[in-house]
Design a protein around this nucleic acid. Structure first.
Length: 329
DNA sequence: TTGTGTTTTATTGCCTCC
DNA sequence: GGAGGCAATAAAACACAA
């Protein structure tokens, strides 16, 4: 690539200067030294429009720190101009850091506009005694730094947003698991009561009796029984039933939860039972029914009453459908 | 003092716009 | 085709621990 940018070059010798034409280099030489304390030695040939650059050449300690041999150490004030010029322009290129003031000034301008108009660039260069190219480079690098910072900020914001959403999601998952466990618990209770009811009916000469539609709801679960039922779910998901109103057997809300499954006007008639009455076969049946019910119940939240009822009804084995049909209607 | 990591200054090559 | 912007990179300057 020819060219344009190779010509921006810094004043003085070194790599960048090697691509410059001689007129350009003459001007740069002149402008380079103007800002130096010994500017007067070189002003005669200057036609530069800038005050010149303090950068690149290493004759002037600007920012402190490690420095190569200084101008004044190398040459006493009596040295002749040829040697001085040789010193300046045959020096290998050295980068110079801008002074704190220069940086501050540039930073303030960067706050106003982060892209420079050519006029502004020339103005800043003149004001700071730098090459316009240096100003342009500084702004370019500054934009790059700003962009990097911005990316970091954006990343942090996204990370925070992600963490927040993930926390919400985890909470919803827990809530879902809790609700699932409640469904299992409730279903088990219903099935147990259905069994109990069947047994009771058979022991009373085989005539089925349903609770009157306006009968009061009675439901009770012993402390011991409750813990037996909930234990597996707790073990698996660390679920606490104690937090649920629905599952609080002492709470009036408990029966309301069951009643919500019934047609308006009907109420649930549930007998107390003794779990110890269950045989191994009955336990197996119960497990099977629990699986079915646990699969079906989650649909209830979106379904209207009829849909929920039919889902519940048809999702069970035939014999259980009959049983549920008995006590639901 | 020296080795090493970071920051700053500057260059290069490519791209877009006018 | 020239001017200017950007990404990638080099290299000097700087900071700091050992």
């Amino acid at each position: 690539m020819a060219e344009k940018k190779r010509m921006y070059g810094v004043c003085g010798g070194g790599i960048a200067a090697s691509n410059m034409d001689s007129d350009f280099l003459q001007n740069q030489r002149a402008s380079c030294v103007l800002s130096h304390p010994r500017d007067s030695f070189f002003t005669s040939s200057s036609s530069s429009s800038y005050l010149g650059s303090r950068s690149i050449l290493s004759f002037d300690g600007i920012t402190g720190g490690k420095k190569s041999k200084s101008f004044y150490q190398s040459f006493g004030q009596e040295e002749n101009l040829e040697e001085l010029e040789e010193y300046y322009f045959l020096q290998p290129e050295k980068k110079r850091r801008l002074t704190a003031d220069q940086v501050l000034f540039l930073e303030k301008n960067f706050e106003d506009v982060n892209k420079l108009e050519p006029e502004k660039k020339a103005e800043l260069a003149k004001e700071l005694g730098l090459q316009p190219r240096q100003i342009a480079v500084w702004f370019q690098n500054r934009r790059a730094r700003w962009k990097t910072k911005q990316l970091e900020k954006d990343y942090e914001a996204l990370q925070a947003s992600y963490n927040s959403l993930k926390a919400d999601y985890d909470n919803l998952l827990k809530e879902k698991d809790n609700l699932k466990a409640e469904v299992v618990y409730i279903t088990e209770k219903l099935l147990l009561n259905e069994k109990e009811n069947t047994n009771s009916t058979l022991s009373h000469g085989g005539s089925l009796t349903a609770a009157p539609s306006n009968a009061s709801v009675t439901y009770s679960v012993s402390e011991d029984e409750s813990s037996k039922v909930s234990a597996p779910a707790q073990k698996q998901e660390d679920v606490s039933y104690g937090t649920s109103d629905v599952l609080d057997s002492d709470s009036p809300h408990h029966t309301e939860a069951f009643s919500s499954l019934l047609p308006p006007g009907d109420s649930l008639y549930i007998f107390e039972h003794d779990q110890s009455d269950l045989s191994q076969d009955e336990e197996d049946d119960r497990s099977r029914n629990l699986e079915s019910a646990a699969y079906i119940f989650p649909k209830l939240e979106d379904a209207d009453y009829c849909n929920a009822q039919s889902s519940f009804y048809y999702g069970l084995p035939d014999e259980d459908q009959a049983a549920f049909g008995f006590w639901l209607y």
